[in-house]
Simulated scan of single mutants.
Amino acid sequence: MNTRFLETLIVLARVGSFRETAEALHVTQTAVSQRIANLEDDLDLHLLDRSSRQLKLTVHGEQVVEQARKILHLEKSIRMLARNDQPSAGPVHVGVVETVVKTWLSQLIQDITAEFPLISLAVTVDTSRNLQDLFTQKKIDLMIQDMPFLPAIGSTDYMVCGVCDYPLAWVSSPALAQGKPSFDLSSLADLRVLTFSRFSLPHANLQTFLADRGLEEVKIENFPSVESILQLLQNSYGVAAIPPAFILKELQEGSLVLQDWPTPLPISMSLFARRSATKAVHEVFQHARRSCHVAAQSVNQRAGQEWILAHDPA
């Protein structure tokens, strides 16, 4: 169905004259008549009451005009969405690991809300492994996580960008070292070492770190929740090699302390999205690096050292 025919019928119903309709649409009266005739043929309906001397719509004609207005309004909305100069809009489903939640997710949400009010963020927090499954199933549009995503390697179908690194530090409660004449890395043999989920990259890096130092027998306990690790640390349950970036409050209060020991490799966070994604997803992808950079500056200033190494957002 040609939308020009619908537009012609709407104008004709409004002005009540073939001549005025032709003037309004900058076409001939013959063209107006032909469009109405074609529309009647397409619908197999009489839209005009031709028994009346004055132009009058039939009942079907009035009903078609009502629906035609809705169709043209919808067409206009679709065309506006397709225009590149229109504001980015629509939902963006973002998957993040908890480390991002603890450090700069709120900055990203605030920045997107302020700059792109028509974008709505839906956030899923999970392990990197589970986020990759959700991303593969297209249940999330963008993921921020710390493991390689194999389908993206050597592929031009994905946008991939490193966003920041989190140096690690050994953390414990101050009470854990009390009464121990020597509290150093060798003490791990007598302690529980807390870390992230078993299939995470930080867990694998920790295993390699311990093996390289002959500490393969150290007891490692896995927890998918950062909050669980922090609670157990404060209860002197064990020690953990975690980013100090998200324990500023606990360090200031003295409920947790840092140990000056060698540490495993930092946690590296990356962004992943499909190149075929919507404009809104592209905007969030590009803005995430800037949000991380802003949040990192704030954390590092408060800490007095670089606990989040944000990549250049330019």
Rank of each mutant, 00 (worst) to 15 (best):
Q137Y: 14
R83G: 01
A13S: 08
R290E: 15
D111C: 10
S77I: 05
N205G: 04
L9R: 12
R79G: 05
Q297H: 08
R69M: 04
T263Y: 03
D184E: 12
R4F: 14
V101L: 10
E115F: 11
E62I: 11
E62D: 08
V226D: 08
V218K: 12
V299S: 06
R290Y: 04
R83K: 09
E23R: 06
R290T: 15
G238D: 05
A68W: 01
Q234F: 04
W307V: 08
D111R: 13
S182G: 02
L258M: 12
L194P: 00
H311A: 12
S236W: 01
N205V: 00
I140H: 01
L142N: 06
G179S: 12
Q207S: 10
F135S: 07
V299Y: 09
I144K: 00
Q178F: 08
D190L: 10
I267P: 02
E221G: 00
L9K: 03
A280Q: 10
Q234K: 12
L39P: 00
M159N: 14
F209E: 03
E40R: 15
D49H: 11
D141W: 01
R290V: 14
R274N: 11
Q301V: 05
I78M: 01
H282N: 05
D157V: 14
S236I: 07
T278D: 01
E23Q: 06
K138Q: 14
Q107L: 12
K70I: 04
H46Q: 07
S186M: 12
A175T: 14
G95I: 00
R274A: 12
L45H: 12
L230S: 02
Y158S: 08
T124R: 12
D312P: 00
